[in-house]
Design a protein around this nucleic acid. Sequence first.
DNA 1: TAAAAGATCCGCT
DNA 2: GCGGATCTTTTAA
Length: 194
Amino acid sequence: MTPLPRAWYARDTLCVARALLGCVLVHQRPDGVRLAGRIVETEAYHQDGDLAAHSYSGRSARNAVMFGQPGYLYVYFIYGMHFCLNVVTEAEGIGCAVLIRGLEPLEGEAEMQRLRGPKIARKQWTNGPAKLCRALGIDRGHDGCDLTGRLVFISAGPDYPDDEVVVTTRIGISKSVDLPWRFYVRDNPWVSRR
DNA sequence: TAAAAGATCCGCT
DNA sequence: GCGGATCTTTTAA
């Protein structure tokens, strides 16, 4: 379990979004509990020409982390009750990130069940961007966290061949809906929606 | 100062 | 399949 280096994130956003499939997202909590899952669904967001990106209208207090160095965590609050997490990509000052939308639980499953609540079935723990944040115990307090550190990080995993990866349009947005910037593992049960 | 939209989820029908 | 929950951020007047 070694954090990917900053240079890994300092690449083209679509390239990173594709490469994240198979990697393992880890939250090593200070109390010793480790929550981890394999990434099976991502979406790319870019400042340049992408009207759906938080960074499209320029830098603000909320999206400041997107304009910082690559390899940092961007967490935002949405719909009055949900958090979503992204990883910052490309060079500092550009304003792009990849949204993590689906995870396969690997470690800390008992704690995930507790965080999601007793009524939620295992299959519903992490098949959505806000769900996986809840299951991993990630919130606004983790905004700006350094992914090359030991608290929250991503380690390399098996690479999926191209014929197991579906590239399609993003969901849940109302602008720039035609960009094929969503990536997910074909037939994987932890993908939020087909 | 106000209003509306928003990278969603869940329960009910 | 539909609508409610719930509040931050942004944009307009």
